Simulated assay, not measured.
Amino acid sequence: MDLHYLTVILLGIVEGLTEFLPVSSTGHLILASELLGYDSATWAMFNVVIQLGAILAVVVLYWRTFWAVGMGLLRREPVSWRFLRNLLLAFMPAAIVGLALHDYVEMLLGAPKVVAWALIVGGVAILLIERMVKEQRFHGIADIPAIRALGVGLIQCISMIPGVSRSGATIMGALTLGVERRTAAEFSFFLAIPTMLGATTLELLKKGDQITSATVGWDSIALGFIVSFFVALLVIKWFVGLVSKHGFTPFAWYRIVAGCAALIWLGMR
């Protein structure tokens, strides 16, 4: 198989594996670009768009939830309106900050050492939060008070630093605000839909002409999309079962080891 398409498949696997785990998909894609020796700027559009494959996996796995909420909105059921309210409140801060700091965030995407340090610091933060958080008061997304949903959204903004992890920030933020583990994970999954759709739309508006480039065209993007979709389908179910039983500590240690290994490797180059 052509080396280009092997790279496409590998990046699709990395995206599907890491998008919903608290380990930073963007950070892993940046480190993968350094490891494989390709120009990350050339593949920036590809890396953003294939995230929609992972997002589609959430829609497919949770279609009954979305259908129930949609029907509830039509019937004006309070629980469905609270569900929608909480998603919108949690999405708003990232939308505002993302638009304001887009150029600065793009600059950080070319800094693999930032990713490595963020992996380590984030891993330590997860270990501390897992030890500190005891009370879990909210066992459904619609049960989360509006102010706490907004708080999760504000914490999500930290994940604009590559290596922090969007899912990690939102899940840990939800835990500190009293949300039960499984609900925190699912809230993060659902929040990824408007967040990543917004990020992809912004990239398409700014750099849509890159899709037609000779290096990364529609065929490559389609293949990466499909691979990330199927891998994410498997990961989401496994992840929810794991954190419900064992929490997030394994991912914290992985982040610390991966970050240290990345720093050592980057220092040897």
Rank of each mutant, 00 (worst) to 15 (best):
M1W: 09
V8E: 11
I9M: 11
I13Q: 08
V14G: 06
T18N: 08
V23R: 01
H28T: 04
L29Q: 03
I30P: 02
L35H: 06
G37F: 08
S40D: 11
A44M: 12
F46E: 08
I55C: 09
I55A: 12
A57P: 07
V59T: 08
L61E: 09
L61W: 02
W63E: 13
W67A: 14
G72I: 06
L73H: 02
P78D: 15
S80A: 15
R82G: 11
F83R: 07
L88F: 13
L88P: 04
L89H: 08
M92A: 15
I96Q: 07
A100V: 15
V105G: 09
V105W: 07
E106W: 03
L109C: 06
P112N: 09
P112A: 11
K113T: 14
W117P: 05
G123T: 06
G123Q: 02
V124T: 09
I126P: 00
L128I: 14
I129Y: 01
R131V: 02
M132S: 12
M132W: 13
Q136L: 12
Q136G: 07
A142S: 15
A142K: 03
A142G: 13
I144V: 15
I144L: 12
I147Q: 11
A149N: 05
G153N: 10
Q156V: 06
C157D: 10
I158N: 04
P162F: 05
G163Q: 06
V164G: 05
S167Q: 08
R181H: 04
R182T: 15
L202F: 12
G208F: 08
Q210C: 05
I211N: 02
S213P: 02
A214H: 10
T215A: 15
G217M: 06
W218Y: 12
D219T: 14
I221M: 12
L223P: 04
G224Q: 02
I226F: 13
V227S: 00
F229P: 00
F230V: 10
L234I: 10
G241E: 09
V243M: 04
F248V: 00
T249G: 07
P250Q: 02
F251S: 04
W253K: 05
W253I: 11
R255P: 05
C260K: 01
I264C: 10
L266S: 07
